[in-house]
Design a protein around this nucleic acid. Sequence first.
DNA 1: TTGTAGGCGTTATCAT
DNA 2: ATGATAACGCCTACAA
Lengths: 355, 355
Amino acid sequence: MSQTAKAPRSRRSTNRVTMDDVAARARVSASSVSLFLRNPEAVSPRIAPRIKQAIDVLGYVPNLLAGSLAAARTRAIGVVVPSLGNAFFSATVAAMQKEFDRHGYQLLLGATEYQPGREADLVRTFLSWSPTALVVTGCRHDDETRALLRSARAPVAEMWELGEQPFDLQVGFSHHAAGEAVARHMLEIGARRVAFIGARMDSDVRARQRCEGFARTMLKAGIEVHVEDAPGDASPKAGAHALADILQRMPEIDAIACSNDVIALGVLFEAQRRGIAVPQQLRVAGFGDLPFSEECVPPLTTVQPRATEIGLRIAQELMERAELPEADKEPRIVDVGFELVVRASTLSANTRQDA
Amino acid sequence: MSQTAKAPRSRRSTNRVTMDDVAARARVSASSVSLFLRNPEAVSPRIAPRIKQAIDVLGYVPNLLAGSLAAARTRAIGVVVPSLGNAFFSATVAAMQKEFDRHGYQLLLGATEYQPGREADLVRTFLSWSPTALVVTGCRHDDETRALLRSARAPVAEMWELGEQPFDLQVGFSHHAAGEAVARHMLEIGARRVAFIGARMDSDVRARQRCEGFARTMLKAGIEVHVEDAPGDASPKAGAHALADILQRMPEIDAIACSNDVIALGVLFEAQRRGIAVPQQLRVAGFGDLPFSEECVPPLTTVQPRATEIGLRIAQELMERAELPEADKEPRIVDVGFELVVRASTLSANTRQDA
DNA sequence: TTGTAGGCGTTATCAT
DNA sequence: ATGATAACGCCTACAA
């Protein structure tokens, strides 16, 4: 006689608890369970507790993969940052994660570490997850990344920088203007011999923009800025070394702007070691308004970039678009601005007024 | 008469490029495309280029959701950290992300911000992604989290702390021992009136462990430690305020240990403002060996925790388990240790030798 | 309100 | 080496 009917190909090795299991135990159909999960009010008050209990007893955990595949949308947002070591971005990411989480969305994280090509790789990876949205840092992208982002079905948010043509959303501010603001302030307090210290400005576009904004404004006032570009990450050590270099080349230096508060901190330390009085002999300004900037000696004049607000605004805008599919598809630009925070490192009772 | 035959329910609204599209264009079966994607060598050299070209022309991006669902495994690792603002964890996460990425795994990130209950929520969310592995911070978890982790089919790694019963992998070091090391060093240099400054030690278990290790060691030497616990995040401001407090209560203080270098930095600033010489009048030690710790004035004695190595080791171990399914299932504990880095903030030519 | 069944885009099994 | 086909677990249009 016929050998046993071909055993149905069973790949069900995963003895995972499924929605069907819950349905069976609650003696309802799987669709009722599905409905209950999405909107508990929608099922009759008689079966609701049964479903609830079955879920608890079985320890059912919904399979998001299956759900996302079926619904053709994943509750995940891909986020690309240059580096997590950078306090600016980690603050923004933290704010985003919190808000996404509140809406039940998962944050997928990737860091480029400023390596060329990594951005495109990360975006490609994210896209294969069918994310609800993508968040990238800055507005400058290589051709490959641009193509990927353009073809993405998900809205694309660019953060921390304005400019270029936005894909869907840009939330940031003008780094050029930030550099300008510091320069104007330094001109007001009588700076004459001026330097700018940055780190890795070949790959850190935004630091370079701040530098340019600073240098151009100074140049308009007839002051040429000596630019020092440290090779590695921004760090106090880079700042200290740069100051040492600068003092050799232009001992008469009287003002230094830095692309990052951690660099400025190093400048303060080196000045302290050398007995150079800040701000009396040397004025120092930074960028970032990090936790130590208010507390250091002297407190640091700096630019506060609203890192948290950037993350929050992006998350809010994206969640809105995700939940109102009819939302306007118009690209949107949000300038969150920045604030020049003047502290003692550029002010002193006896500010020089020599012309 | 019968109305038109039921149109086959088509939900194919997503005009996504699928593997079938690629197969059609390359005039092969979807199976071959799938095979090619996973192992290009496995298909005949005649059709390989056709598939490759079709992929390029169509701009095909594989759908990881479908793939993961079918394969019953997701190339994703869920990672729970207390906070991204903390430089320790962001360094570890960065190292992990890099290594995971190298193996084609995606990092899912969640932060608890030290809120009770958040850990369980995040773990639950991650589990619904069927991740390859889970990484959590520390070994203390509430009952709910423990239950979830225990029931997880994926290996669980605990980081930054050793102790308790490991689920599958623990990579960290003893914070108690770190506190002890600092205490012994301070005893050697003759500290007598001692305080410890921490931040939020009710929720930051590891900071509390360092504090306990420090205080107990001191107590054995007959020295009672005054403990100051700042309410918010660790910050220079918290350190400065704590020092001010301490000076009021015990003006004769001669040594302060901090649970974090950023707190110690604040202590240094406040001491500088008050004209208290470090280390001559006051010895200061921290924890973390952050970028500024080597550069500040005076350079800071601290404990270097190997944040990057923790991330790397975890990633390597997890990738190994993921790729060798036959790997040993034995729980494993890796003590990466720490290093006491002695710098000028606790040393001086004229170290007091009074008994 | 509840149930039925087709489809989401892959991978895995099996036959050729 | 290649192809046909059955899962994977859920969502959702539609019928009851």
